[in-house]
Design a protein around this nucleic acid. Structure first.
Lengths: 165, 165
DNA sequence: ATCTAACTGATAATCATTGTCAGAAAAGTG
DNA sequence: CACTTTTCTGACAATGATTATCAGTTAGAT
């Protein structure tokens, strides 16, 4: 997509180079923080911005390192703390695979699940209304009030299938 | 279908319910060990027996403590080690919830998924052919060759719903 | 029975995550 | 704006599950 794939030229004045990321402006990020009854701090804003701009599905550690570039003062306790709060408030979705560190992403508006390649770890996202409905049905049969679910599919992606020949 | 439409009920005192499997005799357990190219040791036999007899979905720690009664000499490193190997060989299924300790069970013949209560951690099992088929379909749309999947539903069980009034 | 590679238990180490706490900074209040 | 209360923060310690190490033990092939 657009801007980030344009190779940037080194310039004398940093401020000349501005990367625009589309959707979320600051105001919207603040709303998220306020919705959690938290104070708006530069750290929290930075964390949300980085979560939003960056690649999806980061670990807490990766996020911490990314942040370190522009905000070397942010401690990892703060990252973990805020990620947890965001997860509890469902603004962020946590994905765990095996015993590996948890991965996080800003919860997308449309709910989706993941299809992960067991060879190259590529993650595809999908949504499927029919599956969701069946899940509700199963939960109801047991008398459960469904709160959320995790559906992770694993397989070999087309590229890796091709390679293994 | 069939199974999943029967309103199955883990009743009030889970611990009182002992699940009897078809008599898994020693010979059968040995087969499992040999299938993994491992030596048959008293420790491994004890672990398998306890896994088979006991309540489902135990943590490594719980399993270790159970074993301690009759086999106080077995160390927990051995328990962890063997559980991992069993899991890799798909003889045991690992379930993780949040950051909590992993839970294990001997992989049942019929594949099933889990429905977990977020309040009391009770786990119900279900299987649903329709969901499985839809999963295959989704994977195919992306060109993936599906190897396995994780479907974990979370909600509030009837008992806990009643309690919160 | 012998031999050797695989196994084991004790314990140290690791690694993700969480707790602690003194100092810093947000957002009311006057 | 100065003051105050409360929440936040970063450094670092602590935790808790899991894994690695390693010297001694044992299964099972020869």
């Amino acid at each position: 997509m657009g801007r980030d794939s344009v190779p940037l030229l080194p310039r004398q004045h940093d401020e000349d180079i501005v990367i625009h990321h589309d959707p979320f402006d600051e105001a919207e990020l603040k709303k998220i923080i306020r919705a959690l009854n938290l104070k708006v701090t530069s750290q929290r804003m930075a964390i949300l911005k980085t979560l939003h701009e960056g690649r999806r599905h980061v670990t807490a550690q990766e996020l911490y390192e990314k942040l370190a570039k522009d905000h070397p003062e942010i401690g990892f306790a703060t990252v973990y703390r805020f990620l947890r709060t965001l997860t509890e408030g469902a603004f962020v979705t946590e994905v765990r695979m095996g015993g590996l560190p948890a991965r996080y992403e800003l919860t997308p508006k449309g709910h989706h699940d993941h299809l992960t390649c067991v060879k190259c770890s590529k993650i595809c996202e999908f949504e499927n209304r029919a599956i969701e409905q069946l899940q509700e049905k199963v939960a109801n049969q047991f008398g459960f009030a469904l709160t959320h679910h995790i559906l992770e599919l694993y397989g070999v992606c087309p590229e890796c299938q091709a390679k293994s020949k």
